[in-house]
């Protein structure tokens, strides 16, 4: 029986603020799962802490709401032990790029075949609006006592530099585009990253829906005023086509330069995609040939309550 969008929704009451950008992301994620027809019990959504952390409770697949900043560690462990499972990790920008930044970088180096989505709104919402790592230097969102004194992290640039092999940005109010990007990210062979710009209507009074829509620019009678545009509409080619160092470097540099674009024009879409880098499972298979067919979660370890692992060769080597 084909699964419908409704099958991916739980009955858990959603307590996000009215107008929150998170709704678009959870909807897109459910749409993407339905479109790909991923069996509900073959997918796990791991989430961090904060408003975005509740995402896993709204999706009717396995859902693991983890610790602040640690979502990638739980998700990677789950995927490594059961590689046939579809794994999507979600969390806020403070979760992933503040407290969890070390895990973000390390995850990139491993390139485990899963997807990480950051809900990027520039503030810590659930603790009442402190500055998050993506808020720009000198900006003062409404509950900050004084303007932000830190320079911002560049999520796309950091992902590209850390070894993520699929790096993209979406806007939570363009649900269809976001859904398409999620589908591509999940299908990507390796670690995919999606930076989703998401207005926080309660605490971020700078990067609002109207701001992204360029209402202020419209007033200045600029013709095409929405700040958001799609890279794919500009002929931008993010894909590494050959396992060639020069091409990889060129695409990395191009993605990094694109990631610095902000202000009146904000690019969305795929910045970088490279399937010539081996996913972690392949690296494991080099030393454990049957890892994919017989991963940790599938292995039989006992029969009738007794162990089946044979360590006699090791014990023999210790014998005197």
């Amino acid at each position: 029986m084909a699964l419908k969008l409704a099958d991916y929704k739980t009955s858990v009451h959603n307590d996000w603020c009215p107008g929150c950008g998170d709704f678009g992301i959870v909807n897109a994620l459910q749409m993407a799962l339905a479109e790909m027809g991923i069996e509900r019990d073959k997918a796990t959504i791991f989430s961090g802490i904060g408003c975005s952390g509740k995402t896993s409770h709204f999706i009717n697949t396995y859902g693991i709401h983890t610790l602040h900043g640690r979502v990638l560690t739980f998700a990677q462990g789950g995927k490594l032990a059961n590689p046939e499972m579809t794994v999507v990790a979600v969390g806020g920008d403070g979760d992933g790029l503040g407290i969890g930044a070390g895990h973000f970088v390390a995850a990139g180096r491993r390139n485990i075949d899963m997807t990480y989505i950051i809900f990027d709104n520039g503030v810590y919402g659930l603790t009442k609006g402190q500055a998050s790592p993506t808020l720009k230097l000198g900006e003062k969102t409404k509950s900050l006592p004084s303007p932000n004194t830190n320079y911002n992290v560049n999520p796309i640039g950091l992902a590209v530099a850390s070894g993520f092999t699929f790096v993209a940005r979406a806007y939570s109010y363009d649900v269809r585009h976001l859904k398409d990007l999620i589908v591509q990210a999940v299908k990507h062979k390796g670690l995919s990253f999606l930076d989703v710009l998401q207005p926080c209507p309660t605490y971020n009074d700078i990067n609002t829906r109207d701001w992204y829509a360029g209402e202020d620019l419209a007033k200045e009678s600029i013709e095409r005023h929405s700040r958001i545009y799609k890279l794919e509409d500009t002929g931008f080619d993010p894909v590494v086509h050959y396992a060639d160092e020069a091409e990889i470097n060129e695409k990395l540099a191009q993605a990094l330069i694109k990631s610095l674009e902000w202000g009146n024009k904000i690019p969305t879409g795929i910045f970088y995609k490279n399937e010539t880098i081996s996913p972690f499972a392949i690296r494991l298979t080099d030393k454990i040939p049957n890892y994919i067919e017989n991963p940790p979660a599938k292995q039989n370890i006992s029969k009738d309550g007794f162990p089946t692992t044979d360590v006699s060769a090791i014990l023999e080597s210790l014998k005197v």
Binding site: T73, G78, A297
Partner: peptide, 10 residues
């Protein structure tokens, strides 16, 4: 420990 927990959940 995060990875170990993730793995244990499988």
């Amino acid at each position: 420990i995060g990875m170990m927990i993730g793995s244990a959940l499988t």
